[in-house]
């Protein structure tokens, strides 16, 4: 088992070039949420040549639809959603300069190849640990698509947010390695 290392966003190519599948990181800094509907809209904006609601270069996307914010809290439960649903949008996002994605579950073959091609890393956090992960989020605000409710884009500030590298830029795949053993 590898030890936890700290890393801050945004991520540079040098940062991700040092990451290998199975590496474990405590991520700090700003990340942006986006799931199915937000990706649909982001892709449309890119294709239309519109400016995105955040500067994508080096940023990390978090596939999550948090539960509503209870009074006196920063955010509701906020664990990762299943990532393969975002596979069709990944190339567009990587082209904008997105460097990392956090979700849970397998990516398709094409997405894994795109990560190698564009220099992007796919992380998993702890699926189904929404309450636990909410405690690693220190700020949250909606910056776009408020009408989508839980599918809006949030800018989150995270502190020591645990992520594990599933797919690195060298074709490594933690899930495949696990079942090969």
């Amino acid at each position: 088992m590898k030890t936890w290392k700290r890393v801050s966003t945004p991520l540079s190519y040098d940062d991700v070039s040092l990451m290998r599948s199975g590496d474990r990181f405590l991520l700090s800094g700003i990340i942006y949420t986006a799931r199915d509907r937000a990706h649909e809209r982001l892709r449309y904006m890119v294709l239309e040549g519109k400016e995105l609601p955040f500067m994508p270069a080096g940023q990390v996307l978090y596939y999550v639809g948090p539960s509503p914010q209870p009074q006196g809290r920063i955010i509701g439960a906020a664990g990762p959603t299943t990532s393969y649903r975002m596979d069709p949008f990944t190339e567009v996002m990587l082209k904008t300069g997105i460097r990392g994605m956090i979700g849970k579950g397998k990516r398709d073959e094409k997405t894994r190849a795109l990560l190698q091609q564009y220099g992007g890393v796919y992380f998993s956090s702890y699926g189904g640990a929404g309450a636990y992960l909410a405690k690693r989020i220190t700020e949250a605000r909606v910056i776009a698509f408020e009408d989508l409710g839980p599918e809006a884009i949030y800018e989150l500030r995270v502190l020591d947010f645990p992520v594990i590298v599933i797919n690195d830029i060298y074709g490594g795949d933690l899930y495949e390695d696990a079942i090969r053993k």
Partner: peptide, 21 residues
């Protein structure tokens, strides 16, 4: 153990076990 801690936080701090309710 993280899953155990998640359940403890959910119960004591009234955060849903999972954001997918």
């Amino acid at each position: 153990k993280v899953l155990k801690e998640n359940s403890l936080i959910a119960r004591t701090e009234e955060l849903p076990l999972c954001q997918d309710c």
